[in-house]
Every structure is written in structure tokens, then in C-alpha cells.
Design a protein around this nucleic acid. Structure first.
Length: 343
DNA sequence: TCTGGGGTCCTAGGACCC
DNA sequence: TCTGGGGTCCTAGGACCC
């Protein structure tokens, strides 16, 4: 028996949940995001595969999506519905009895001791489909990084195995940006060093990469490009490090009295979230995005850990007072941080 | 017509202490 | 009078992910 890591990833999860409750949308380009009005500020949360054919993808401004695919059905994001669907999926997944680590609404790692990981993958897909009517893809690897990349290669609704033996033949010539953790900025920096592909990053000079990206991220990048990494799957319950609320205003706010009002409103929501966690906050951070999309943050550490709305609201205002730039405000956010450690 | 919301982790610089 | 070298903690910002 060999120990495998499986990465289960729901296919077009948010769009799929919407199509389930509106079957007439099946086969149509569906775009979910913002409040569903593509004329307003907001970005795409998920596009159905049909909409992706038009170049619509997550993170794209809704307005741009409407231009690329004017015939798409635009729907508002409905968090509660996705949370409920996600809970059903993860409950079904855990019923199979494997050590399971949930990563978000629509993905999880599973550890399995087996000589036939494809059979386990198919069983997982079938069980999730029976319980929720949702399709998933499953990646199989010797560790998390291999499994994660494998699930992307398995889409839609497939199973794909990626191991140290096949890593370079499958991914070696692909751009380094396919690796999780390598975003646009990192990819550009790597290109500046003459590193473009996964194979090139895997063979890069460790000291040079560490000098450019730091002693932790540098070596980690090279290891990732080699397809090496942790195979641990943790069943420990997830403890959030922070809870936050933020809003982008449809029209920029110019009056600072209004800014204070909005910060207090967000702080009240955060206080409720903190109370639901049953752990006190130790620090409150306010985020301000000014009109030209410049974002900065300032925090205020609480005199003592607290969960009540008054203390969190006061701390948020104290943090807000550290901002000196009074230009128009596009976005405000309030975040509560919990103490780290075991308690 | 630009660019959401909710998160995580790492880094760099200053403060502070010995 | 022209002031080293560590270590640790705190804060703000950067990058990334879904």
C-alpha cells in the first residue's frame, strides 16, 4: 500500500451551484459576481465554462465581462448559498472516512493509503455527485503540490495522476506561473533572471533565487518547481487568524465624517463575526483604498483582547485616525486579528 | 469603463533591549 | 563624542490564493 495525496476540486463551483437551482441556465454562459449588475463596480467570482469561451474569468471586471460576452446571464454572488453547498460537499467527502483537510469552499486534500488511487478518486467523485449533484475533479500525487497541479489537469470531471516520475514530462516546458505561489509579479521577476519554465526554475541557482526572493520563499520556489513539498494532510479543525469585512463604494466617499460612519458600520459587523468565533480579537486593522487605487492599512492593538462592539469600534476609529491622507475613498475595510498560539 | 471580498504568509524596517 | 552587534517584537506592505 502506498500513501497518496488527493486534491478534490469542484468544477466551476459557484456557477454550478447557481445552475443547480436554475436548471434552465445549463449550457448557457453564466457569470456570477458583485450584485449581478455588470454596469456596476465589481468583478467576476466565477464564470461557467460556456462564458469562459468568451474570455471571461474570475477577477475580470464585470463591465469587461459584459463587453466580452453581452449575452451572458449575470447573477449576484450569494455567499450563503455557496457556504451551504460547500458544507454539503465537505460532509459527503468526510463520510468516506479519509483524513480530509478542507481548503476553502470548493477544494480539499485527502490522504489515502491505497494501491489504486484512481479508484478512490472515482469513489470520491461519485459520492459527492450522489450527495450534491456537483461535479468535481481529482488530482493524485505523492504530495500536495503534485496533487494540486494534477487536479487542474483533470478538469473537467476527470482524474489525473502526477508523480515525481512524470512531473517534468508533463509540466517541465510550461511557464513557471502554472505553479501555485508563482503569480504575475514573481513570474516577471523570474523572467528577469532568465527563468521562464518549470524546468528552468527547478534547475536554477538556489543562492541566486534566495537572494532575489528571500531565504524562505526562494528555496521554496525551487523545491516547488521540482514537484517536491509537504505530503501532510491535517484533520485539525481550522482556526481562522482573522476576520474582516470590506466594501468598495459605488461612488467614492469624500466626506471624512461619512468615512468614520462607514468604518463604524464595518466594525460592528466584524464584532459580530468575532463573537461568533468565541475568541477575542487582539488587534484591529483598518484598510483604506483611495480613489487612484492606492491602498494602505493602519492598525490599533487593543489594550486587552476583546469581542465587544464598543471596544472594536473604538479601536477601528483609533486606527483610522492614523491616516493623514484625506483624498476620496474608494474602499474601506476593517479586520480583526486573533491571538496566535494554541489557546 | 478599470481593478470584489475574504483570507494567508513572508519580508523589511524601526524600536527597544542588553 | 560619533557611537558595535545581536536578538526580538511590532507594524505596514507585498504577493498570492480562491
Amino acid at each position: 500500500m502506498t500513501r497518496w495525496v488527493l486534491h478534490v476540486d469542484l468544477d466551476q463551483f459557484i456557477a454550478a451551484v447557481e445552475i443547480l437551482r436554475r436548471p434552465e441556465l445549463r449550457g448557457l454562459p453564466v457569470v456570477v459576481g458583485g450584485d449581478g449588475d455588470p454596469a456596476k463596480r465589481g468583478v467576476v467570482a466565477t464564470a461557467s465554462y460556456e462564458a469562459r469561451e468568451y474570455g471571461v474569468h474570475s477577477g475580470l471586471p464585470m463591465r469587461t465581462a459584459a463587453r466580452r460576452c453581452p449575452d451572458a446571464v449575470f447573477l449576484p454572488a450569494d455567499r450563503a448559498a455557496y457556504e451551504a453547498a460547500s458544507a454539503e460537499v465537505m460532509t459527503a467527502l468526510r463520510e468516506l472516512g479519509y483524513v480530509t483537510e478542507v481548503l476553502g469552499w470548493d477544494e480539499a486534500f485527502v490522504a489515502a493509503e491505497t494501491d489504486d488511487p484512481e479508484a478512490v478518486a472515482r469513489r470520491i467523485q461519485q459520492h459527492i455527485r450522489n450527495a450534491t449533484r456537483l461535479a468535481s475533479s481529482v488530482g493524485i500525487g505523492e504530495n500536495r503540490i503534485q496533487a494540486k497541479l494534477a487536479s487542474a489537469l483533470a478538469k473537467p470531471a476527470g482524474v489525473f495522476r502526477l508523480t515525481s516520475g512524470s512531473w517534468f514530462s508533463v509540466l517541465g516546458e510550461r511557464p513557471a506561473g502554472v505553479l501555485p505561489g508563482v503569480g504575475a509579479k514573481t513570474e516577471r521577476k523570474l523572467a528577469g533572471m532568465g527563468i521562464r519554465t518549470v524546468t528552468e526554475l527547478a534547475g536554477a541557482d538556489l543562492a541566486a533565487v534566495a537572494a532575489r526572493f528571500g531565504p524562505t520563499i526562494g528555496p521554496w520556489l525551487v523545491q516547488t518547481a521540482r514537484g517536491l513539498g509537504s505530503a501532510e494532510v491535517s484533520a485539525e479543525p481550522y482556526l481562522p487568524r482573522s476576520r474582516s469585512r470590506e466594501t468598495t463604494f459605488q461612488r467614492n466617499i469624500e466626506d471624512w465624517a461619512q468615512v468614520r460612519e462607514q468604518v463604524l458600520r464595518l466594525a460592528a459587523q466584524v464584532a459580530q463575526d468575532v463573537q461568533a468565533e468565541q475568541r477575542p480579537a487582539v488587534r484591529i486593522v483598518v484598510k483604506v483604498r483611495h480613489a487612484p487605487f492606492r491602498t494602505s492599512t493602519h492598525g490599533h492593538t487593543l489594550a486587552e483582547p476583546a469581542s465587544d462592539g464598543a471596544a472594536i469600534g473604538e479601536a477601528a476609529l483609533a486606527a483610522l485616525d492614523k491616516f493623514t491622507d484625506r483624498r476620496p475613498v474608494r474602499l474601506l475595510g476593517v479586520r480583526a486579528e486573533f491571538a496566535d498560539g494554541e489557546d
